[in-house]
Structure formats: structure tokens, C-alpha cells
């Protein structure tokens, strides 16, 4: 079955949020059983649960708006990589614990600002999802920020790794704040917020944590993008091969 990309800006906006949450949640779930210590193993999988729960609420809403009979599972399991709208940042590999923390820190700080703005949406359902998510994001922000500081201002080894994680992923942070025509159309319908003005607040928050962590803020240079439009890094295909295997091999399988 073909999977057309929706032209409804409201649905694309919901999928951008949902795909970020699902793919990042899946990445974090890969840590299950591999965390550096038990408490952090549990913490990362807790984050994964929150993110996947958020994705479910958003997919369900997108499916209802679309009215084509697609449920949360369809969006997660039946689309190919070119129809995923997540930012490139969230599909990047876990790397070591420090790189996972860097990715989480960049995303959490963005998500906190974005979902906070989204609670003002005139669309009651989306505002409710945002308000619910924000309570959880506040916990995530604290977790990832504390770890950036602990690893950055830690041993030589942890500092080297934390700096490497920050440097490695910096080029993917610009896309979080880039806006296109679909975003602008979604803003008019109350389904997105203007992310560009949030970039300053994000920089301020990130700079403060990096400074406390005695880490060096990377130079702003070329930024990778394309995820929002379905142009992904090679990593997403491997994620989907794992995530979608069962539904691809046994379509409509249920428990």
C-alpha cells in the first residue's frame, strides 16, 4: 500500500512531533539492559516510555483528523523512512552514554520550549497533549542537564566523552528551529508554534549548562537538515527495520 505524505499541515505538524518522540523513544529503548548502572538503565527506559506514550497520543489524533482509518500502530509500523518527519538529531546512534545524554539534552531543551508554547494552542486536544507532555519533559530536562554537568565537570575521561558527544551532534540542532511552509500553515491553524524565536532561549539555556559543565560550546557552522521533509540519514532505515519487522513480516498481527 502506498503511503502518501499528507498535504494537511495540521497532520504533518502532529507527525513531526510524534515521529521525534517515537524515534527518540526507540533509540532510548535500545539502552534497556545496557545502561552504565542499573539506575540509569531504568531512567533511560522511563524516558523511552514517556516518549512513546506521547507519540501514541499524537498519532491517534493525527489518524482521527486524517479520517483514513489509520491508527497509532499504522503510523509507527507502516510508513517507510521517506514518510517519517522526525528531526535528524533523534535518529542519530546512541554512541556512548555521553553521546546519548548530549542528544537528550539538546532535544529536551528544545521540547520544553516548544511544548510550553504549544500549551497555548487554540486546539484544545493538542494543548492538552502538550500540557500533559510538558510535566514529563520538565523531569527529562533536569535529568539530561544534570548528566551533562556531571560528566563535563567530572573526570578527564568523562569530560572528553561529553565534549565529543556535544561536538558530534551540534550540527543537528539547527534543524529543530528551522521553519518551512508547512510549519507556517500549521501555525495559522494552531497546530505548530514558531520555533525560530525559541532558538535564543534554547541557546541561553544550553550555554548556561555547558558553562557549568566546563564544556566548550561548539562554533555554529553548517547545520544538517532534511528530516522534516523525509530526507534522513542512513540510521533511520536501520531503526525501522528493527521497529517494524513484525508488522512487515506478519501484517496486522495482534497479541
Amino acid at each position: 500500500m502506498a503511503t502518501p505524505t499528507s498535504t494537511d499541515a495540521r497532520i504533518v505538524a502532529l507527525l513531526r512531533l510524534a515521529d521525534d518522540a517515537l524515534i527518540l523513544g526507540h533509540r532510548l529503548s535500545e539502552w534497556c539492559g545496557h545502561g552504565p548502572i542499573l539506575e540509569q538503565d531504568i531512567a533511560l527506559t522511563n524516558h523511552a516510555l514517556d516518549l512513546i506514550g506521547r507519540a501514541r497520543a499524537l498519532y491517534t489524533y493525527a489518524g482521527e483528523l486524517e479520517g483514513a482509518g489509520h491508527d497509532e500502530d499504522w503510523f509507527a509500523y507502516r510508513r517507510d523512512a521517506i514518510h517519517f518527519h522526525n528531526a535528524l538529531l533523534v535518529e542519530q546512534p546512541n554512541g556512548d552514554f555521553a553521546q546519548t545524554i548530549a542528544r537528550q539534552f539538546f532535544y529536551d531543551r528544545y521540547a520544553q520550549l516548544y511544548y510550553h508554547a504549544l500549551t497555548e494552542s487554540p486546539d484544545e486536544r493538542l494543548a492538552a497533549i502538550a500540557a500533559k507532555s510538558l510535566k514529563e519533559i520538565d523531569y527529562h530536562v533536569r535529568f539530561s542537564s544534570e548528566w551533562v554537568i556531571r560528566l563535563g565537570d567530572g573526570t578527564d575521561e568523562s569530560k572528553t566523552r561529553m565534549q565529543r558527544g556535544i561536538d558530534e551532534l551540534w550540527r543537528y540542532t539547527g534543524e529543530l528551529f528551522a521553519m518551512d511552509e508547512l510549519d507556517r500553515a500549521a501555525i495559522e491553524r494552531g497546530f505548530a508554534v514558531d520555533a525560530a524565536p525559541l532558538h535564543d532561549a534554547w541557546n541561553t539555556a544550553v550555554d548556561a549548562v555547558l558553562a557549568e559543565a566546563t564544556l566548550t560550546r561548539p562554533e555554529d557552522g553548517w547545520m544538517a537538515d532534511g528530516g522534516r521533509a523525509g530526507r534522513h540519514t542512513e540510521h533511520l532505515g536501520f531503526i525501522l527495520a528493527d521497529l517494524q519487522f513484525l508488522q512487515r513480516a506478519y501484517p496486522d498481527a495482534t497479541w
Binding site: 539506575e39 540509569q40 531504568i42 522511563n46
Partner: peptide
């Protein structure tokens, strides 16, 4: 507080 993320999403350790 050992960890803010415990045995279930609603609990800390």
C-alpha cells in the same frame, strides 16, 4: 534520592 526514575514512571528511587 538515588534516581528520579524508578521502577515505574510515577516513582523515584
Amino acid at each position: 534520592c538515588v534516581s528520579e526514575f524508578g521502577s515505574t514512571p510515577c516513582k523515584a528511587h
